[in-house]
Write a protein that binds this DNA or RNA. Structure first.
Lengths: 134, 134
DNA sequence: ATGAATGCAACAGCAATAGTTACGTTTGAA
DNA sequence: TTCAAACGTAACTATTGCTGTTGCATTCAT
């Protein structure tokens, strides 16, 4: 695993869960399906839980379950839950020399923020259940 | 520099160049403005040259210059030149166990490809000269 | 010829992250 | 009550990607 693996893992798991929303799955099960480690699964899914997309229960017969109907979970929800921020340009610790540079920097940041919002809007148009194929 | 620094460096440089399109700039000049290293600049700008956005000349009085009018260079051109592929999920060297998994994987890849295309379309709507502020 | 510039290769250092191990905590069943 | 199963979390390692840096060959105008 390498590129965007958190997003990939999250999407695979959620889409898979959308098939049987009531079934409780352990992180070990999920990890086996995803070819990774239970701790990694808990790390990623923990973020989705914080965002209210999943619930987890400890102890015997514990595990993970969708917190909402899959039709109500959009890709934007997942993206924002993971806090990936794919687009945002670097914060530039290099203090701009002249005011022209400074203005340019702000201009670019603003444009990139608009682009990211467009991406989020687009992600909001697709739900987990659609990804799975209804 | 850290996050999306290549994209950031490319945008800053191109936007800056759009102000005086005929001026030749050395990688040392650009690096000084960007607060980085000439070699790093040449690495990033080299990709833009391969994509036909810039030209470079070696030797005495050499340097970098826009290869096209700034109004004809879109953010999509820059994005594609850098081959960043922000969206694409990982290729999953983990061979899917069952055919359901396999179908799901292809489904997700397909959806993410659509999303990335939407992003590129959106990036195509803004040009370097617009970023600069006309 | 010489100095200024790119092109390129190689290497070090750093940051992010996956993977792993270990241990505490919680829960329900036996 | 005891025990096994599960999550939660911390700590550590390894890997990966990228920036920064140095060095050197090449090219070009003077």
């Amino acid at each position: 695993m390498k590129r965007n693996s958190r997003l990939s893992l999250a999407l695979h798991t959620l889409s898979h869960m959308a098939g049987e929303p009531d079934r409780v799955r352990t992180s070990a099960d999920i990890a086996a399906h995803a070819g990774t480690n239970p701790v990694v699964v808990r790390r990623v899914l923990g973020r989705l839980r914080e965002a209210g997309l999943l619930t987890s229960e400890k102890g015997y017969a514990g595990g993970w379950r969708l917190a909402r109907a899959p039709e109500s979970i959009s890709l934007a929800d997942v993206y924002l839950a993971l806090d990936e921020s794919l687009i945002t340009t670097d914060t530039g610790d290099h203090a701009p020399s002249c005011s022209v540079e400074h203005a340019l920097h702000r201009r670019i940041s603003s444009v990139m923020a608009e682009i990211e919002q467009s991406l989020i809007d687009r992600l909001g148009e697709t739900t987990i259940s659609e990804v799975r194929g209804t």
